[in-house]
């Protein structure tokens, strides 16, 4: 479960990305986050993942108040969250398999079980045949799938995706959305941000609309 309690995020320089925001996302819910770029979507996701810290207010994730944790404890919160980045953040110096292995190395997964997990995740996103390929040879859609495989390989309870369908054509974007839906169906809390609302409306899920750091009317 994710809960925001009067959260304000002000960046150095005075820019207020989020203004006094309160809401809750239930465990196992699938929620869309809508708004133009600069509306605060990315900041909101970063606060959930503990990448950024709230200037004021409380951010509760899985019962832990991130505002009260020491910085050194935040990485362990992130280990229970899967992150899909708009710019993928794939490591181009190693093959697909090793990219997906990274989260398992970080949580210290047993190596033999880890290989099975990696192949399962790659199978899920349809990249099983490309585990030895270098990411540079993948298409944009495949790179996004690789990023998703890396986000789910350690079976997080929360999956956050920042503009996962940006830069993809509509057919590919729908594929990706179906993928997220399948994770939601097995009980994962899924939060997806996008600036294109037409994709979200087909799914009939809750949509949190942001404008300039506040709920849009």
């Amino acid at each position: 479960m994710i809960q925001f309690d009067q959260v304000t995020k002000r960046y150095p320089g005075g820019n207020e990305a989020l203004k006094n925001l309160s809401f809750a996302i239930d465990s196992g819910e699938m929620v869309f986050l809508a708004g133009h770029s600069g509306a605060g979507k990315s900041t909101l996701l970063k606060l959930i993942a503990g990448i950024e810290r709230a200037t004021s207010g409380g951010v509760l994730v899985n019962g832990q108040n991130l505002s009260k944790l020491r910085p050194s404890q935040l990485p362990y919160v992130r280990q229970h969250i899967g992150l899909v980045f708009q710019d993928h953040k794939i490591l181009f110096d190693r093959p697909v398999f090793d990219n997906v292995m990274l989260p398992l190395n970080i949580i210290g997964f047993d190596r033999r079980d880890a290989a099975k997990r990696v192949r399962a995740a790659l199978d899920k996103v349809g990249l099983l045949g490309k585990e030895k390929a270098m990411p540079i040879h993948l298409s944009g859609g495949e790179q996004q799938r690789l990023c998703i495989a890396r986000a789910v390989v350690h079976r997080p309870s929360i999956l956050l995706a920042d503009e996962p369908s940006a830069n993809l054509d509509r057919a590919y974007a729908l594929d990706i959305m179906e993928l997220f839906k399948s994770f939601h169906q097995v009980g994962v809390t899924v939060v997806i941000s996008a600036h294109d609302e037409t994709l979200m409306e087909d799914y009939g899920r809750r949509i949190i609309r942001l404008r300039e750091g506040q709920f849009a009317a």
Partner: peptide, 14 residues
Amino acid sequence: RDEIEVSKLIGASD
């Protein structure tokens, strides 16, 4: 640098 940044983002401790 890239590897460190990504590792930090997905939960690696210092």
